[in-house]
Amino acid sequence: MTPTLQIFLIVSAALFSTGLLAALSRRHAIFILIGIEMMLAAANLNFIAFWRFGPPHQPPTGVMIALFSIAIAAAEAAVGLAMVIAVYRHYHTTNVDQLDQLRG
């Protein structure tokens, strides 16, 4: 039996949900960034799977979008981790529950 597109999409959905779990349920800022990275990787897996199961002899659009998405995710990780370090320097914590200065 050869795998269908649905199996890849379900694997990607499971990965996305795990990333969502990490981003929503942890209190540490680095865990939230790890969750966001996992969700972006799941989206990349979807792009590649749709390209592979799409019509052949077309320009490889899914591969291109996955490449651009990897570059943007790298930029996001760099800026996000720099923000974690800046916040730690100010407040001496990375627990996002304690960063409530803007609460009214």
């Binding site: 969502l20 981003a23 929503l24 349920s25 942890r26 529950d97």
Partner: peptide, 10 residues
Amino acid sequence: GFNWGGAIVA
């Protein structure tokens, strides 16, 4: 701290 609401949403 582990927020179980996040697990339910996921």
